[in-house]
Design a binder for these strands. Sequence first.
DNA 1: GTGAAAGCGCTAACAA
DNA 2: TTGTTAGCGCTTTCAC
Lengths: 351, 351
Amino acid sequence: MDRSTGGAVVTMREVAERAGVTKQTVSNVVTGRVRVRPETEARVRAAIAELGYTPNLVARSLATGASRTVGLFVPTVTNAFYSEVVEEAENVLEEHGYHLLLCTTRQDAERARRHMASLASRSVDALLIAGDDGLDDHLPLLAGAGFPIALCAWETEIPGTLPVVTIDYEQAGHLAGRHLRELGHERVAVVASLPAHADRLDGFRRAFARDGLTVPDAMVFPVSDPTAAGGFTAASEALRAHPELTAIFATYDVLAIGALDAARTLGRAVPGSLSVVGHDDVDEARHVHPSLTTVAIPSRAMARQAIELLLRAVEDGRPPVNSLQLLRPTLVARDSSGPVPRDSSGPVPRS
Amino acid sequence: MDRSTGGAVVTMREVAERAGVTKQTVSNVVTGRVRVRPETEARVRAAIAELGYTPNLVARSLATGASRTVGLFVPTVTNAFYSEVVEEAENVLEEHGYHLLLCTTRQDAERARRHMASLASRSVDALLIAGDDGLDDHLPLLAGAGFPIALCAWETEIPGTLPVVTIDYEQAGHLAGRHLRELGHERVAVVASLPAHADRLDGFRRAFARDGLTVPDAMVFPVSDPTAAGGFTAASEALRAHPELTAIFATYDVLAIGALDAARTLGRAVPGSLSVVGHDDVDEARHVHPSLTTVAIPSRAMARQAIELLLRAVEDGRPPVNSLQLLRPTLVARDSSGPVPRDSSGPVPRS
DNA sequence: GTGAAAGCGCTAACAA
DNA sequence: TTGTTAGCGCTTTCAC
């Protein structure tokens, strides 16, 4: 009688009885860790099929200490960047027969601590922490966890104690800056989520510094709210206070979309009178108007590599290689950026 | 010595020894299910604190059959609507001390089946299935699961066997249609993800039918790809084949954003020459240009209610109330919709 | 109120 | 190759 749809009520002992062997032999067949005589194996498999047996993973976890579950911390999933990270992480885990325990931290260290505590007592096999917002101080706390931990999408203060797979955010900012410099822009503002995106800002500034130009702090407009609305507000403020601006770099696309909206509201044509550059290359970047020039981030590749790093550690039974891996961003030039307008050009740049 | 950061190596037995009681008494203190003399309790608590004891949830699960974990199936998280559902579900679970096991199904029934099988053997306490795409046939399979299951964001063929918390999608489509009718539109197209969004389409048509108008099948353009790009393609096709169209309803915002892009590309002013209405009211709807008129869906409320329904069932130890709960959408009129252009108006509608 | 014993379903070590 | 014996850390039942 096939009860395969009847829940996991069938136990290994029942299978053993039916097959005329012991639990252990059933276990050997199921796990495949020990050779079993083909004939015996066939009997066991038959019994498994007939009874609709499924191993109880909880019991297995208790016995082995492993759970084929990996935890993932993200600040939020309501954000195209992180949702891609989550999705790709889950993909990779699924490929390897693991499950994903999703924990959103909402930038709340206390919440992260609570999650952390229960993860440990659930014997998760590994933990990936994506995005640094507000967790930096609590990293030491992770030191003694009983499972491998890795970090990804990490921008601020990369700790030397844990393996990190992240983006070269400084380079990303640099690409944005260089693009605007190549178009001749000098008077630019940055709409930024700070301090989180400090590296992007640094890289952006480096591109200007190379030409002897500076992007003063007064031209950096922090957003109060990490949404398009926040980008709108910050960009509006920037453009109102400094009508001479010819370009805005927003440290991520959602802010840039808000900035496009602000430009429109203030009657600034994009890219005719103002260039806007974003960061992330989310799906919408291609479909807003004008389509957004942005720095593409290999978020899926990053998530995949981080998970695979952890899984390797889990399966080898040793701590993960403590390395820092930086993935390269690329610039995607679309319609929101163009040459600096003639009538706003200042002194000729040095190079 | 406080080893609270040292992993869950401290066991209940050690606490018991230290406090001079048995495991059982420690268990009684920890779970609070049995009265313990205050003096004893104090000793136990002290021992717990000193040793940094954390209960092993896996062992507890094995003994009780419950895991304080709830599974969530979503087609994807790379979609503003579902990511809100996931986030809110996780919030509610966290409030109740539960964890979220996230399973993306990618519209792949086989993948869903695999997930389902391991969920059962992990003793999850409940399962929420959000979004129906491609799972419909496999619902009977869930019948004998050993835990409560509920459905949300369900549009097609609502099954009578499981509790459902969803949106009145027909009403949502109706709101979109009525809005366009009130603006005088008659020659309209629908860009739709089918058959998933059949209810929205039905409701939309009902609004026109009320005025004696029809939205023929030829004016329904299914998208090949559930992204802005897909919306762009379908809307372009519609507008090219039928320049007389004065409005497009897209069955979700991301498609609508693609449709806005298509309108622009084809030189159709929005809303001057073409109105566009979306569905979902995602964050970006407010910030694209022109801002998108759309039907707002209470996705978070839906997720919360569904999870709370399940948690109630878990905690009462009985199957969830088998009910159908429909949450009401609302129309959010923004700038992408306007009166039908003078020169395209056809015969005066009946009412 | 507390202790002793049994068992959740499985794997691990060893013996046969 | 297979069976035997333990035990993972907890809860549960029942004495006391």
